[in-house]
């Protein structure tokens, strides 16, 4: 039996809220050497050999699931994918029963995407396995936040003092929340820009500025993180039309050029070209969108590696139903 060791992150990664600047930097620094592994001939190291990881996706996702799967396989973990179609999820099994089943199968780690905010924490409090949140409702998507931070750091150096504006549907975005918490922890200045119907109430009280016009946001920011506008938001009446959204809030080459500034443009994907971002921006020199994808694998490898040290003491507490 191995003795208790604790990971620098604790048992789980549920969100970036509450992580210290040091913890976030540890993840980003750890991701650096993992970038190189993906360049090797044998893109695999044995560090998680014998560990079992379940990718539990209650919502459809391709890129996040694939990115986690690459990360897991490159660390030599054994992985099982469970997605909502065809699993007991649709047969009405409750989350707590799913958790108990995973526990009974001696899973080491669970990567979960779920439609309800707080679901990752719910699971983390109930099983001894490490839980990594791959997106819970509108709450957080911490590995996306981390890969955005890593990409910004790669291109602009230390995050501290940078001005980052998140543009678009912040209200429904777990990516936005993870970015806000992570960026603020590292000392960036953060603002949001979008139609007021898509900005959360009280956002200013979270220490975040608000720009009504995307042109003003571009004058201010060093970095733009452009969020996907879910098409159902238009059906929900949050914006009158996609054309109007693009015309007023779209990140276009003309608007970027008008600033005369060298902005960095991120997008968590998948993009709606011609809605929130124009193709000549997505494919242009400002864009680091493909770097984000590459960094996604490295950051997820770093998180898996850091959590994998295991923390049996905390796991035991979680098993007893206590705080972990």
């Amino acid at each position: 039996m191995s003795r208790a060791v604790s990971s620098p992150l604790g048992k789980d990664l549920v969100g970036l809220e509450g992580l210290s600047a040091d913890q976030i930097r540890t993840i980003l620094d750890t991701a650096e050497p993992f970038k190189e592994i993906s360049q090797r001939r044998v893109k695999k190291v044995p560090v998680l050999r014998g560990k079992t990881i379940v990718n539990l996706f209650f919502e459809p996702s391709t890129r996040t699931r694939v990115s986690f799967e690459f990360a897991e396989k490159r660390l030599s973990a054994d992985t099982v994918n469970i997605s909502s179609s065809g699993s007991s999820v649709v047969k009405g099994e409750t989350l707590v029963d799913t958790a108990r089943n995973l526990e009974a199968m001696q899973i080491d780690m669970v990567v979960m995407r779920h439609g309800s905010s707080g679901a990752a924490r719910f699971l983390a409090e109930r099983i001894p396995s490490n839980v990594i949140n791959a997106g819970d409702g509108r709450h957080e998507h911490p590995t996306q936040g981390l890969l955005d931070l890593l990409t910004i750091r790669d291109h602009r150096g230390p995050i501290e003092g940078l001005k980052v504006c998140i543009v678009g549907d912040v209200l429904h975005s777990r990516v936005a929340r993870s970015n806000i918490f992570g960026l603020l922890a590292l000392g960036a200045e953060v603002a949001v820009c979008g139609p007021r119907t898509l900005l959360p109430v009280g956002i200013e009280e979270m220490g975040v500025g608000v720009f009504a016009r995307v042109e003003e946001a571009m004058e201010w920011a060093d970095v733009l993180n452009v969020l996907r506008l879910q098409l159902e938001r238009m059906q929900g009446g949050f914006v009158p039309s996609l054309r109007e959204y693009n015309r007023i809030y779209g990140v276009s080459r003309a608007r970027l050029d008008a600033t005369g500034r060298d902005l960095l443009v991120l997008h968590p994907g998948p993009m709606n070209r011609g809605v929130e971002i124009d193709s000549d921006v997505a494919d242009g020199p400002h864009s680091v969108i493909l770097n984000q994808v590459t960094n996604g694998v490295a950051v997820r490898m770093a998180v898996l590696y850091l959590l994998a040290g295991g923390a049996p003491d905390k796991a035991e507490a979680a098993k007893q139903g206590g705080e972990a």
Binding site: S117, D136, H139, R177, V201, G202, I203, M206
Partner: peptide
Amino acid sequence: NEGVMSSRMGVRGKP
């Protein structure tokens, strides 16, 4: 409740 807490938690609020 809709407010800073709901915004932080990412939960839809009732104003």
